[in-house]
Simulated assay, not measured.
Amino acid sequence: MTTQQQQNPDMHAETESSIADLMPYIKAAQNRFPSKEALFAEVNKERDGRKKRLKALQYTSAFIFCALGIWAVNPTISSKTYTTNYAQHDSISLSDGSTVQLNANSTLTANYRLRSREIYLEKGEASFTVKHALRPFTVAINTSIVLDIGTVFNIAKWDQSFIATVMEGEVELQTGDNKTRLVTGQSVKVTQLEVGSPYRASMDEVTAWQTGKILFNKTSLKDAINSIQRYREAPIALDPRLENMLITGIYEISKIEQLLDSMDSMFPVKVTRLDQGEIKIQKK
Rank of each mutant, 00 (worst) to 15 (best):
F216H: 07
S78F: 11
E194C: 02
Y25H: 14
N244K: 14
Q192I: 02
I279V: 13
V271Y: 01
E16C: 04
L121T: 12
R50F: 10
A110F: 10
E194T: 07
C66Q: 01
T76P: 01
P9C: 07
Q88S: 14
Q174E: 10
K52A: 10
Y25K: 11
L114E: 09
S78R: 10
N44Q: 10
V271N: 01
R230C: 01
I253S: 09
F137K: 12
Y199S: 05
A201V: 02
K222S: 12
F128Y: 13
P9I: 13
V190R: 05
M203H: 00
D48S: 06
A72G: 01
T83W: 00
G196W: 05
R200A: 12
V166S: 04
V152E: 15
Q101D: 08
Q186F: 06
D204N: 11
L54K: 03
M1H: 10
A38N: 08
A201S: 14
G69W: 01
G169N: 06
T15R: 10
D239H: 13
R232N: 08
K55P: 01
T191Q: 02
Y25W: 11
N244T: 14
I163R: 07
F267C: 04
I145E: 14
S202W: 03
L94W: 06
D264R: 07
A234K: 13
E122R: 08
T84S: 13
R230P: 07
E252Y: 12
N103W: 05
G124H: 02
I77V: 15
F33A: 04
S265V: 01
D261R: 11
P34K: 12
V43Y: 11
M263S: 05
N44R: 11
D223S: 10
K131Q: 15
Q58N: 04
S227N: 13
D204K: 03
E170Q: 12
E170L: 06
A56Q: 15
K123Q: 13
F162S: 07
M245D: 15
I155Y: 08
L221T: 06
G176P: 03
V73T: 09
Q229W: 00
T138R: 15
P235G: 08
Y120W: 02
F162K: 03
F40W: 06
L121W: 03
G69H: 03
A38V: 08
E14A: 13
R241Y: 15
E118C: 00
D90P: 00
F216L: 10
R115D: 04
P235C: 01
V166E: 03
Y112P: 03
I250D: 15
V139E: 04
F40C: 04
I149Y: 14
